[in-house]
Nucleic acid binder design. Structure first.
Lengths: 184, 184
DNA sequence: GGTCCCATGTAACAAGTTACATGATTCC
DNA sequence: GGAATCATGTAACTTGTTACATGGGACC
């Protein structure tokens, strides 16, 4: 569901090609939702079949031609239905592959568990760096669309990202300290 | 992958029926991995087909008969292969449906966004309560299995749960404060 | 008689992953 | 000639969801 509605949400801001949408999922939004290129094109087919979006071919001389998608009235209704739906059951269906691994790490060596956690810390730190680099992209994107007030909500997700990954690092460091105590 | 290996991990501790495994996924481990009953039974079929687990029928007079699963040597090899695999690409493929909704909440009213966040806070608080109630289940489960040193790793996941959900509440409250500023 | 716990699934479908496949234009 | 960016997908497969389906035993 979220991918479908994220695409509708993007097309509600501006007309985009599959490539544009894919690029967006590879940048800012990637911190909250990861999606494959192939899945985006597949989902665009589904959305078209459901009459939530439509597309026109745009012929370009300097670049390959592209299919420009736009949201339909039906699509807007569906987007708002989803946004207004305050049911959070789906949201609470949490899945964390790292935690499953840690849970069973008693079968692994302490040193190997520590290495995994250290790798995780590095990845989280890298994401925080990437987010810092992406902060100005918000204003860039905002300049392209009509709605000028969006950045307020986008900043809430940005703040989430920083708080989340910092908290992950904090936890992983706590674990490493505890593991070190065990060795000595 | 994680479900498959979580089941292998559980069967590595003790022989279990599909029902036992399901109950486990509905309790403690639910904070890190949510799974449907139907999916567990399906996955047990896959694991059997791959010779990672085997089962025997246990006839019970006071209760319905059951299929008791045990891990094979092949299954143990696969479990350790997965545990030792330090590749964290899959782990970093993050997906957060709430954040997607917040990202597009500019199309919604501020009051509706606040209500969603308040609901989320309540759900997180409820989970923290449930986790507190489940803390003693660790020692219960530990008493049932051979390995006595596991609780150390389980406490790392428990600590994660508390830190994670407290951080979620902190962020959501920050958002609500910011939204309130907007109204006044 | 009703509810709860125990116990095991199937079928249809939706969502997500991996690998493959192609080809244009631009800039160095 | 090669790398980077633009551009769009398909096929096979795995994973996860939703709805359905059944039935025994215990306890009140």
């Amino acid at each position: 569901m979220p991918l479908k509605h994220a695409i509708l949400g993007l097309l509600n801001y501006a007309d985009m090609s599959g490539y544009d949408i894919d690029r967006f999922f590879k940048s800012s939004i990637a911190f909250y939702w990861h999606a494959q290129t192939s899945q985006i094109y597949k989902e665009l087919n589904n959305l078209t079949a459901n009459h939530y979006v439509e597309s026109d071919i745009v012929y370009q001389s300097d670049k390959p031609n592209k299919k420009l998608f736009h949201i339909t009235d039906e699509g807007k209704v569906e987007l708002h239905r989803w946004l207004a739906d305050a049911n959070i059951d789906d949201i609470m269906k949490y899945k964390n592959p790292l935690l499953i691994k840690i849970f069973f790490s008693g079968n692994l060596g302490i040193d190997q568990t520590m290495r995994l956690l250290e790798k995780y810390i590095q990845s989280c730190a890298q994401i925080i760096e990437d987010m810092n680099a992406d902060i100005n992209k918000i204003s860039e994107f905002e300049a392209q669309i009509e709605q000028k007030d969006e950045s307020f909500f986008w900043s809430m997700t940005m703040t989430y990202g920083f708080m989340y990954y910092q908290n992950e690092i904090k936890w992983a460091n706590w674990c490493i300290d505890k593991l070190k105590e065990r060795i000595s």
